[in-house]
């Protein structure tokens, strides 16, 4: 998503901006898949990493279609029940990273990376 903070943090990198999508609105998510497939076809990434939010759902579906491994990173402020985007993306992901040891019990296949900041 284009915003002043993402623009400055990603300055100097090649970026494809995409609008935010609500994971609870399937039409918007479906519309975002085509865009994501085109980006993956053009960029041919070896690995995708995302912490969301809704815009990631279409990307993770496209990653499945293109057979690109995708890693879901659970944000630090998820302490129990995650939102829809998190639930969908962690199911679609090839691997899941968590920042809290307590989440390993509810995300058995997750890898603990620790607090990133």
């Amino acid at each position: 998503m284009r915003a002043p903070d993402t623009e400055t943090l990603l300055a100097g990198h090649r970026v494809h901006w995409a609008p935010e999508r609500s994971a609870s609105r399937p039409i918007g998510v479906l519309a975002s898949i085509g865009r994501a497939v085109r980006v993956l076809r053009r960029e041919r990434p070896d690995l995708i990493i995302s912490a969301g939010t809704g815009v990631a759902v279409g990307v993770f579906l496209a990653a499945r279609l293109r057979r690109v491994p995708a890693v879901w990173l659970e944000t630090l402020n998820i302490v129990d029940s995650p939102g829809i985007a998190s639930r969908l993306c962690s199911r679609l992901a090839t691997a899941v990273l968590v920042q809290r040891p307590s989440l390993l019990s509810v995300r058995p296949r997750a890898v603990l990376i620790g607090e990133l900041y």
Partner: peptide, 12 residues
């Protein structure tokens, strides 16, 4: 927000 994860986070 679409869910209450901020409430759960702040309570913890």
């Amino acid at each position: 927000m679409g869910n209450d994860h901020q409430v759960a986070y702040l309570r913890q």
